[in-house]
């Protein structure tokens, strides 16, 4: 509890935090209000799974992905805190690649979210502060890393059919320290990544059963990718590489540099009932620096359950 409070204070600067702190320290005026179970099973294709900036080095794969999550929503009920909820969740994600088994992984994670709605009614705007942590346990253990993400999201429903949100988040990954160094003077910490991401999301009901969503994000910070040993030698001469090492899974070199990425996602959600839906979509991502860009396209279909 003290940790949560410290976390809220750290995020700080937002009016709701002080209100919450009062509710937190004072007499218990809140109760566990809601438990939410999330489960999904997904099939996904990825045409540049190694994020290579060289067309010839791109590797594609297909994966099965399962996510199971459980969260508790703590509802405050004093004054304007009637509009404030704290969400504490834990989840586990499994990824099983069909070709590159080295990428298979089990990712346990925790998440904390604080959401305040500014008023009454479906179109009142809301603000969400979120922090999450994920431990990626990958088959190719060189890729193991811990990821921390913290951000702020502002959303609003404009009509019963349309809602939108913008999100800013900071993402920090911490990979292994003992990856092989292949160029003296250049670190091997290719999975130590820091980036900031701005995302815009819009959801529009096409029919009462079908929701169409668009999601655009701009990432700024560390980019990593993989290519053959020959190509990495060339890449070293044209970009400011900040780290590189050997990549066991793709049998080439993994590199890191400072860059950006644009990602656009279009998806649909077909509601089977209040708790279940079939989601499908496509995600296009282009990232790198200068003319050295990777292009990754993904297609997915999943079955989601939420209760």
């Amino acid at each position: 509890m003290a940790l949560t409070k410290r976390l809220l204070q750290a995020i700080g600067g937002v009016g709701v935090t002080s209100v919450l702190s009062v509710g937190w320290i004072g007499p218990v005026q809140a109760e566990w209000a809601e438990s939410v179970l999330d489960a999904s099973a997904e099939y996904r294709t990825n045409d540049d799974v190694n994020l290579s900036v060289f067309n010839d080095d791109e590797k594609s794969d297909k994966l099965l992905r399962g996510v199971l999550g459980f969260s508790k929503i703590y509802q405050f009920d004093a004054g304007i805190a009637d509009y404030t909820r704290l969400n504490i969740g834990a989840s586990i994600e499994l990824q099983d690649y069909s070709e590159f088994d080295g990428l298979d992984r089990v990712n346990p994670g925790v998440a904390l979210g604080l959401t305040h709605k500014f008023g009454l009614g479906p179109d009142a705007p809301w603000l969400n502060l979120h922090v999450s942590g994920v431990v990626e346990n990958v088959d190719d253990s060189d890729r193991n890393k811990n990821i921390i993400n913290a951000g702020i999201r502002l959303g609003r429903r404009f009509t019963p059919r349309f809602d939108a949100a913008i999100d800013w988040s900071y993402d920090k990954s911490n990979g292994k320290d003992d990856l092989p160094v292949i160029s003296p003077g250049l670190p091997s910490s290719v999975y130590d990544l820091q980036r900031s991401i701005i995302t815009a999301i819009g959801n529009y009901q096409v029919t009462p059963r079908l929701l169409g969503s668009i999601r655009y994000s701009y990432l700024n910070g560390d980019i990593n990718g993989e290519c053959t040993v020959e190509n990495v030698g060339f890449l070293l001469t044209v970009i400011d590489m900040t780290a590189h090492t050997l990549d066991r899974t793709f049998e080439g070199c993994r590199y890191r540099f400072d860059g950006y990425a644009n990602t656009l996602g279009l998806s649909g959600s077909y509601a089977l009932g209040p708790h279940t839906a079939i989601n499908f979509g496509s995600v296009w991502s282009k990232g790198g620096t200068g003319r050295w860009l990777y292009r990754q396209n993904q297609l997915f279909v999943n079955f989601s359950y939420r209760h």
Partner: peptide, 17 residues
């Protein structure tokens, strides 16, 4: 036509819940 806000789970978690 009468619309009500979306309830079913989506792939872009969003909205106030």
């Amino acid at each position: 036509k009468l619309w009500k806000p979306w309830r079913a789970p989506t792939s872009t978690t969003g909205g106030y819940r």
